[in-house]
Amino acid sequence: MTQQQHQPRPGDGPYTVRTPRVVAARRLQRRRDRDAAGLFLAEGPQAVREAAASAAVHEIFGTTPALARHAELIESAARAGARVSPVTDEALAALAETVRPQGLVAVCAQRSVPLEKALERGPRLVAVLAEIRDPGNAGTVLRTADAAGAGAVVFAGDAVDPYNGKCVRASAGSLFHVDVAREPDPTGAIGTIRGRGLAVYAATGYGETDLDELADTGGLDGPTAWLFGSEAHGLPEELLAAADARVRVPIYGGAESLNLAAAAAVCLYASARAHRAGRNTSE
């Protein structure tokens, strides 16, 4: 790490809330500024570590204690070309969006790819988040999709920005592991996905098809895309109609339903299990 990368000019001390670099980074808390710059903020050592591993980090802001505590991470990011900028506690708090920030915030390059490009990689499992506006839910589903082995997550229609700070935190680094696509037309996205040979299943509590039956009859053996709607309103009728099947997660107890994150986990892992079983059988 060079002296220039590691700290401001001699005598300047740590950056403050008024330092132009900090002011510019704070603007990334607004979606329009994120999209204009093609950048976003990732907060906390876990997110910064995952961002650095994917070579997405442009700059790391950190308090002096945090930079020392995570010296190995900082050195690695700096070797990859990231600028490292010490900041005051006040400046770090202004950059962070949590009540108790962990001392590091990174400016990262947005990683969205066109849906067609994501599908060219041949993912066998895709999650489509249609009109999901809650960033915590969206980030959690993204994290679950990553854990289940999905190759792409599509934010479709008027969905939350995947680079919203709460969504980034809820993804726990998974944002840097999968292809993320943003598609303004959900119906068009379904058509594109189906055109690549994936079955498209709409997850809904009122589905005619039982998830267990679908899995038992081989319906999940092939490449699959799961379509999830908002927790409050579910999927609009036109998207339900565009899917190959409307699938419900069976409820065996007295609960009325599952929340979005839980239902998504059940569906995605059902597909992941079917894919693994098919691969083991072919071997």
Rank of each mutant, 00 (worst) to 15 (best):
V57Q: 03
A147C: 15
A150E: 10
W226F: 12
N164D: 14
G278Q: 12
L125T: 05
E256K: 14
L125S: 05
P14Y: 03
G218Y: 15
H70I: 00
E237A: 13
F228S: 10
I60A: 02
D35K: 13
G149Q: 03
A265I: 11
G13R: 12
V126R: 02
L260C: 13
R79P: 00
S85P: 00
S257Q: 09
E120K: 13
L67S: 02
G165A: 15
A66L: 00
A94L: 14
Y269F: 15
Q110C: 05
R21G: 01
V153N: 03
T209R: 12
L214A: 07
E43S: 02
F155S: 07
A145F: 10
L125E: 05
A232C: 00
D158K: 11
P14S: 15
V57H: 04
R49C: 06
A94W: 12
G151C: 07
A109I: 06
A94H: 09
A150R: 10
A203E: 00
C108G: 08
A159C: 02
A109P: 00
E59M: 11
G191M: 09
T88N: 09
L175T: 11
V17N: 04
A138Y: 08
P65A: 06
N137Q: 09
T140S: 15
G222M: 04
D134H: 06
S171D: 15
L258D: 08
L260Y: 12
L104R: 00
T63S: 02
A261T: 13
V200E: 01
A106D: 03
Q102V: 01
R18C: 08
G139L: 12
P8S: 07
A24V: 11
D146H: 15
F155G: 06
I132N: 02
A130Q: 00
A274V: 05
R169E: 11
A277R: 11
